[in-house]
Design a protein around this nucleic acid. Structure first.
Lengths: 216, 216
DNA sequence: ACATTATTAGAGTGATTACTCTAAACTGTC
DNA sequence: GACAGTTTAGAGTAATCACTCTAATAATGT
């Protein structure tokens, strides 16, 4: 792997593990047994690294939220979206966790992130429109917008929530159970809008994500 | 006002304005035209200040979420809870905004926060139980738990969401419109569970919080 | 073999920042 | 007004960290 890519990979790994604030550029270099000078040969500063990682994340999410134009959405699609989104969320979990301060004084990243959010909203709404068209949910336009926004908030806050409220030891890591619970919560948001026709099968699907009684 | 309280007030103000990370202890002292030595005479370190501010917040929220035992809940109570919670959220907005990193390596604060969260969850559930008892909402036990958790997430993430996704300029501040939209979103979470009897009046109540079409 | 360019090492620096230390000023009491 | 205790000033410090600079080494082309 190219040095540049190794730096990105190491930065991502360390950021996810410890949070961006705790990971210094020297730390990243040391992790790769490389000099700081070398790191700065490839990236002009730390923000540059973060920006590139964000671009990867963005590309990935955009790809994950496409709506097929040649067919109606199915209930399996819905599950699929969720799983892909949560997978991406996990692999780049430092992003939403540290967003507040990643954006501090970073106009370029901030405006890019705002556009990213709007695009995601549009895509999420498109997915819900698709589900409505396929008669899987019944929902008014206005409610759909509100639902899409709440979905965004819960999805993007899920790992922060886990970190702050559930993990006692920073060494303790997030379990599969906790990840599943996130998907369960999104199902929960959509559930009231399920059509009679699909209620049973959607509920059956959600069963697999019920967290254990004591997970919280 | 006592010096100690002036320090707390100034710290809260600056933290809310600029985020905890950007506000140094020297900065707080300078804002009060006071020496750093003086500040450290009253607080042994920065975390002590943060901890005390958190205690105030905690006390306030706990008080705001009590359920009356001598009567049934009304639909006005519901609105009242929301308004009080959002008011507290606003006055201590740095807390949830910077939570992730406030907790870094702060075992005392972290465990206290975890307990606070659990207590809030219990209280939120108690409120929803109360609304169910008063026939305002119809909801199963399991759905109620999911609803309470989603409520917590949306409420505590609301100002982060605004900061990251809506404000372009850090100087730009949060408008009343944006605050109202947060309350609207919580209404939105509960809406599907409204009983036939109360649907109309709850919806009428929510009308006041519909954000302007272009707010987003 | 030689020249040129790309990559790397690693010591070092300047800025920031949480916090300390000592002495001075204030406050109340007898 | 002397003494004791409390509060304040303000210079200073040690640690951290993003980033720089110079020189050495590797890679590439001719």
């Amino acid at each position: 792997m190219k040095t540049r890519d190794r730096i990105l990979a190491a930065a991502l790994e360390l950021f996810n593990q410890q949070g961006e604030r705790k990971v210094t550029t020297n730390h990243i270099a040391a992790h790769l047994e490389m000099s700081p000078g070398n790191l700065y040969y490839h990236f002009k500063n730390k923000q540059e690294i973060i920006f590139e990682l964000f671009l990867s994340y963005e590309e990935r999410v955009d790809a994950n939220l496409q709506v097929p134009t040649d067919r109606l959405l199915t209930i399996e699609d819905k599950l699929n979206y969720l799983q892909k989104v949560f997978q991406g969320l996990w692999e780049f979990r430092f992003i939403h966790r540290d967003m507040e301060h990643l954006l501090l004084g970073e106009e370029r990243l901030h405006s890019r992130y705002r556009e990213f959010f709007r695009r995601c909203q549009k895509n999420t709404e498109a997915i819900y429109f698709g589900l409505r068209e396929a008669n899987i949910i019944e929902i008014s336009d206005r409610d759909l917008e509100g639902l899409a926004l709440n979905t965004w908030i819960v999805v993007t806050s899920w790992f922060s929530f886990l970190q702050c409220n559930l993990l006692s030891d920073p060494e303790e890591s997030i379990t599969l159970e906790m990840l599943k619970a996130g998907i369960y919560q999104i199902f929960q948001l959509e559930r009231p809008y399920l059509s009679d026709e699909y209620r049973a099968s959607a509920n059956a699907m959600q069963q697999a994500f019920i967290p254990k009684p004591d997970w919280l």
